[in-house]
Simulated assay, not measured.
Amino acid sequence: MRTLARTWARVGLRPEEMQAWIAALGVDGAVIARDCRTVGIALSAMGVVLDGKRVRERLRGGESAFSAMARAAACGRSLKD
């Protein structure tokens, strides 16, 4: 559990932001959250459906944040706030 806490701490979120990302991606989703923030995917985009799957499902299933962003662009969707 300490390892997860350290990983989340390195993402650099305020506590309320961290709770929201955990709710969206799970307690082990710190690296995904970091990658999303790096490429500009907003937390509010986790529920966006791309090609029949929600963004959060794609990311949790192993699709990279970069790939999800490219897929959204190809579909004419924005994952930014």
Rank of each mutant, 00 (worst) to 15 (best):
R37N: 06
R34L: 08
P15R: 11
A70D: 12
A73L: 14
G12W: 05
V31M: 09
M69T: 12
A73D: 11
I32S: 01
E63K: 05
D51S: 12
D28A: 15
R77E: 14
L43V: 01
R34V: 00
D81G: 13
G62R: 09
A73M: 10
R60C: 09
E16Y: 11
L13M: 08
A24G: 04
D51M: 06
V27M: 08
C75G: 07
S67Y: 07
G61L: 08
G47K: 06
R71P: 06
S67R: 14
T7L: 08
R34N: 10
G29L: 08
M46W: 03
G40Q: 06
R10T: 15
R60H: 04
A9M: 07
W21V: 01
A72E: 07
A23I: 02
R77A: 14
A65H: 02
E16C: 06
A30H: 10
A45T: 10
A73S: 12
A20T: 02
M69W: 02
P15N: 09
R2K: 07
L25D: 10
G76A: 11
I22Y: 00
V48N: 01
A72F: 00
R71G: 00
R6M: 14
R58D: 00
R58W: 07
R14M: 13
M46K: 07
A45C: 08
R14H: 05
C36T: 04
D28L: 10
K80M: 13
G29W: 02
A68L: 13
E17M: 07
D35E: 15
A33G: 09
R6I: 08
A23K: 13
K53R: 15
A72K: 05
G12K: 02
W21D: 04
A42L: 03
A74I: 09
R34Q: 11
S64R: 11
L79G: 01
G26T: 09
A30L: 08
S44F: 01
V49T: 13
R77L: 15
R77N: 10
R71K: 13
L4S: 13
E63G: 01
A9R: 05
G12I: 01
R37C: 03
E16H: 13
S78E: 11
G52C: 02
G52T: 04
V11K: 02
A33R: 02
I22D: 03
R56C: 12
M69V: 11
K80P: 00
I22Q: 13
M1S: 15
R54E: 12
A70K: 14
V11C: 11
R77P: 05
A65W: 02
C75Q: 15
